[in-house]
Design a protein around this nucleic acid. Structure first.
Lengths: 196, 196
DNA sequence: GTCTATATCAGGATAGAC
DNA sequence: GTCTATCCTGATATAGAC
């Protein structure tokens, strides 16, 4: 097994465990066990836990960029692209109900720990915000694109948090429908301000 | 110092630390230090960490009920009462930006840990949901009171999460204004369904 | 590149003196 | 009711053999 390959498997497992159990709550032993590696050998690939976190964040950053590019390719209009974002709540419903949003969860945990990598985790939020803002600009909402993007991001975070707490599928469907209706209203109200 | 008094001080410090740093990340030593107590003596009051968590949850439950009763007393109309809930985002802005929502944060952490006290933490959400639903019923929205309550709870969670991530005061003010406008629209649309 | 063995440390928890 | 001293466990991290 090449070092690169093993390294990637470690990052992949750490990514999943950090999401499902949290960063602090995940031990080296768990990651090592997940990739069938001895704890000793683990340190050949990563010296510290923060190094793994860093690698996971880079991986998530790239995965997010790739996903956004894929959404661009899969849809022809800004509205359809924004809906791809909203649909994430349905597509990833099972995972969100069990573990919440990976970005929101990690950002919050790192904020509480005053962890140096906090800014990088928040950077993942920025990728979505800026991409969404770009779609709203394309939609003609140049003035308040950023605000609209944050509003949508806010809703997705709120839905994720309550979905985790209550495990209520009907709630998720209802809120996704409401976000879709909200989006349609924004399209109709091009040039006006948020909420009007 | 009476045992009861010391016990209360421990619960108070644990409540704050669980909020500011997270449950797992808070050690016995930190709580003991916060109340100027030796680690040994600590165990006279609480045998296990879960026992402290339990006491903190009971305290939060009571504090929440008290706050809801206070809101009832301070406002005469359901709309004003619901606005008291929304205004929490402004009143507690500094803490929310630093540490997020105490209920959302704890629920999420306990969910990931599959902790037995998870249901109790979610119970705090239910206090707000049911109280808000009661206000919407009083407002004449009998049919969809529960849905409206969850929608508002969802928004407050989303705002809290992004406020923690971005520390953007203008964003919080804007979203609070938007929630206020949304509420006014619900009052105007009594009898209709969410989002319409 | 992978292993076993081990050092080191922190956190949870207990015993017993005062 | 409070303290000091101590144990145990699990987690990070290292050394060195293969």
């Amino acid at each position: 097994m090449s070092a690169q390959n093993t390294r990637n498997r470690i990052i992949e497992a750490a990514d999943r465990l950090f999401y499902e159990r949290g960063f602090e709550a995940t031990s080296f032993a768990e990651i090592a066990a997940a990739v069938d590696l001895s704890r000793g050998n683990f340190y050949y690939h990563f010296k510290t836990k923060d190094e793994i976190l860093e690698a996971v964040l880079v991986r998530r950053d790239q995965a997010t960029r790739d996903m956004l590019v894929a959404w661009e390719g899969a849809a022809d209009t800004p509205v359809e692209r924004i809906l791809a974002f909203v649909q994430m709540l349905i597509v990833n419903q099972a995972k969100i109900m069990a573990f919440g949003c990976p970005i929101g969860g990690l950002s919050n945990e790192l904020a509480k720990l005053s962890h140096p990598a906090k800014a990088e985790a928040i950077g993942l939020f920025l990728l979505f915000r800026d991409w969404l803002a770009g779609q709203f600009v394309a939609l003609g909402r140049v003035q308040d694109a950023q605000e609209l993007a944050l509003h949508l991001l806010m809703r997705s975070q709120g839905v994720a948090t309550l979905a985790t707490a209550f495990g209520d599928e009907a709630f998720v469907r209802r809120e996704v429908a409401d976000m879709t209706a909200w989006l349609a209203a924004q399209v109709a109200a091009t040039g006006q301000t948020l909420g009007s």
